[in-house]
């Protein structure tokens, strides 16, 4: 009883904090502040995963998104060192704000429709059985279940993804060499 209350309270605290930091990403004029705000958002997301009991995903979220990808973003943004005066430039494409607003409202509407009618979550709930992933997590532990799923169940997609990444790296190399 108390634990669900605690979980609900922590969920709402996290939800408000992560929404605020996510808003900060688009509201801050300074690009460095936006990038840092995005890092904060990703850390809050990791806390959400932690709250759901997904320890490994939470830590990998911190490691890869907050620690590696966002650091690269931050690196580039700081190297360009935007001036405060530069961000005051007027938007040359004024009509795109209206379209962005309409599309944003559509996205929020669609997501909240799915969320409140529970169309997407129903199929996950019904498949919870002996062979499901949640059962495996309970019996064998978080990481072991993850590793088994990755290297036994999803070995082929995993290898294909790694091939894709190698191709991407080679492409980056080729484009980098040209200059």
């Amino acid at each position: 009883m108390t634990s669900t209350l605690v979980i609900q309270i922590s969920f709402f605290v996290l939800a408000i904090a992560s929404t605020a930091s996510a808003l900060g990403v688009i509201i801050f004029k300074n690009a460095v502040h936006s990038a840092l705000s995005l890092i904060l958002t990703l850390l809050f997301l990791a806390l959400f995963y932690l709250q759901l009991g997904a320890m490994f995903i939470a830590i990998v979220q911190i490691l890869i998104y907050a620690g590696a990808i966002m650091v690269l973003f931050l690196f580039v943004v700081t190297m360009l060192a935007p001036d405060a005066s530069e961000s005051e430039v007027r938007d040359p494409l004024r009509w795109q704000r209206i379209i962005a607003g309409v599309l944003g409202v559509a996205l929020v509407g669609a997501l909240s429709y799915l969320l409140f009618t529970g169309v997407a979550t129903q199929s996950i709930v019904t498949t919870a059985g002996v062979n499901s992933l949640s059962h495996m997590v309970d019996t064998r532990g978080n990481i072991e279940a993850f590793g088994l799923a990755l290297f036994h169940g999803f070995a082929f997609p995993f290898e294909v993804t790694s091939l894709l990444i190698v191709v991407a790296i080679l492409g980056a190399l080729v484009f980098g060499r040209r200059t």
């Binding site: 840092l36 890092i39 320890m55 490994f56 830590i59 911190i62 931050l74 700081t78 532990g141 978080n142």
Partner: peptide
């Protein structure tokens, strides 16, 4: 914690953010 090593690496990767922040 079952994720000891990964946790350590994740924490040490956050340090870079502070260094860039201080420099900027």
């Amino acid at each position: 914690l079952a994720t000891g090593i990964v946790y350590y690496v994740a924490m040490s990767s956050i340090d870079v953010v502070a260094v860039v922040m201080a420099g900027y």
